[in-house]
Amino acid sequence: MRLFVQAVILGLLAGGVYALMASGLTLAFGIMRVINVAQGVMIILGAYVSYTLFTHFGVDPFLSVLFVVPVVFVLGVVIELVFIRPLRPSEREELSLLVTWAVALGIEGVLGLVYSTTYRSTIPSYANAAWRIGGFAVLQVQVYAFGLSVVILAVLGVVLAKTRFGRAVRGTVQNPASAALLGVDERKVAAIGFGLSVATAAAAGAVYGVVTPFNPGSHYDLISLLLTIIVLGGMGSLPGTVVAAVLMGVSQALLATYISPTSAKLTFFILLIGILVVRPQGLFGAVERGKL
């Protein structure tokens, strides 16, 4: 039982970070019907920028988020303008897979040239510090990573629910023609929305590098995980993404504890096949437009 509780705690903490990683993917799909398979490489890019700031300038990886987010936001806007906007709306969903995959490979190549393929890790002084709560050991960095993810997701939630821009995003997701008639510039919403979606991934990446060693090819594992999460949650549903991410984190931790860490990587295949058989539209069932 003790082992079980420990695994669940670890899984919840990891699931919070997964939720942040995947939320951007959901946002981009909801607004633009773009399946951004470069989301994984954006996480790795965030991890490298944070790693560089830490090793060269001594910037704490959690503080580096303040730099990573705006830089990758601008990169996201540029990617949207240059690579995604020229796609015809009718073909965007399919072609965005190819285009963003090309972007992912390009960024992976550049990262490989700059940093080589050696695994890196951002290791601050408190990397191995742990708290003991009720007899359970919890790594401080994992709690910080979880806390940061929750804060960023909460800010994203408030922006979407309470602001003029958030209403424009939700309006565009639910009924783009109607939003345009009310004066919403869909292209502007798409550019800013895509920038936000990759910026959240990069923020998650900054903390990912503290928790997990990474190299430029690590995005392959990440994108498989993230795609599973958004399919599991129901494509385009933000609450569904959060629930699926936590479910994924806990399942992985339990498998790693009771079977082996290697088999934990199979978790997403098992969950994906299971959910597609039982509930093909995902947990929150947002198969149609309009659920963000």
């Binding site: 003029r164 209403r167 424009a168 939700r170 309006g171 639910q174 009924n175 023609a177 109607s178 939003a179 008639l181 009310l182 004066g183 919403v184 309009g290 659920k291 963000l292």
Partner: peptide
């Protein structure tokens, strides 16, 4: 729209998952 011409289209044009209040606020987006 800025010239004061507003279009209420034939098909349902509300945002179904948004509240009535948010829908009306969207009318004043500009």
């Amino acid at each position: 729209l800025d010239h004061g011409v507003v279009h209420v289209p034939q098909e349902r044009s509300l945002f179904p998952s948004m509240s009535v209040w948010d829908n009306v606020l969207m009318g004043g987006y500009v």
